[in-house]
């Protein structure tokens, strides 16, 4: 079943088109990777999808409803979309456990005991239960990223968005995050992942959406994109990113 369908999505900043009519869909349980050269609009696309950035035009059908409509309570929609940012952005004044609990308490209205129980469950899901009382400053980048993922998962999202999840991590930690994404995929979590990390993309199943100059230039498994693709832009991108592949 189609969970998310994007039609003719555009975004202009001061008359400059960042997104110029993006079309794609995401099915339940699917994992899809968004790639493209820097400045292609991939981060803007992700932020338009939950209207952290207001799109200029187009439709975003999420769960059969157009969430760009004026009467939509966007905060309700956002609570169903888990968002994991590039720089983790853990709340610095809260411990790992409290980071996961905050949304459960304030948005889901769970009691302290319920929220704690659920948060511990999510932290153990990402193998962070031993660090639950540590503050972000005392966690490594990979650990912070795991907590950020647990924080997003705790809200029972219909879909998880990842914005460059490995770009702030060293290769070893990036590999762990790739494994974690695969595990989530195996658990039927729907995932949309923006990345420029070819290694990560190669380690994930599912199609790659190749974005260039604000529109979808190609959509195919990464193996196809990397083998003499018809598009000059796609070839140039992968030659630069992974010259030996």
């Amino acid at each position: 079943m189609t969970l998310l369908q994007v039609r003719n999505l555009t975004k202009n900043y001061d008359g400059i088109g960042i997104l110029n009519g993006v079309n794609f869909s995401l099915h339940e349980g699917e994992i899809k990777v968004v790639m493209g050269p820097s400045g292609c609009g991939k981060t803007t696309l992700l932020r338009c999808l939950n209207r952290l950035v207001e799109p200029s035009s187009g439709e975003i059908i999420f769960d059969d409803k157009d969430i760009t409509a004026a009467d939509v309570d966007i905060r309700q929609v956002r609570q169903r979309i888990g968002f994991v940012f590039q720089n983790f952005a853990l709340y610095r004044h809260l411990s790992a456990l409290e980071n996961v609990k905050l949304g459960l308490r304030k948005l889901r209205g769970l009691s302290d005991a319920e929220a704690t129980q659920r948060a511990i469950y999510e932290l153990s899901h990402v193998e962070m239960q031993d660090h639950q009382d540590k503050y972000p400053a005392h966690l490594s980048g990979g650990q912070q990223q795991r907590v950020a993922i647990a924080r997003a998962l705790a809200m029972d999202p219909a879909v998880l968005f990842f914005d460059e999840p490995t770009s702030a991590l060293d290769p070893l930690m990036a590999r762990e995050i790739a494994n974690l994404l695969n595990r989530l995929h195996a658990e039927k979590v729907t995932i949309l992942c923006v990345t420029h990390d070819v290694t990560l993309a190669k380690n994930l199943p599912g199609d790659v959406l190749f974005l260039n100059h604000g529109h979808v230039e190609a959509e195919a498994p990464i193996s196809e994109l990397m083998q003499n693709h018809a598009s000059e832009n796609v070839r140039a991108f992968f030659e630069e990113k992974a010259p030996n592949a």
């Binding site: 952290l52 905060r75 709340y91 949304g103 948005l107 950020a148």
Partner: peptide, 20 residues
Amino acid sequence: NEIMVAQSMGMHRIQILISI
């Protein structure tokens, strides 16, 4: 970024002010 995360979680402006 922390404020943006809170927004993307669906938190209200006032909730963000008080909790973050």
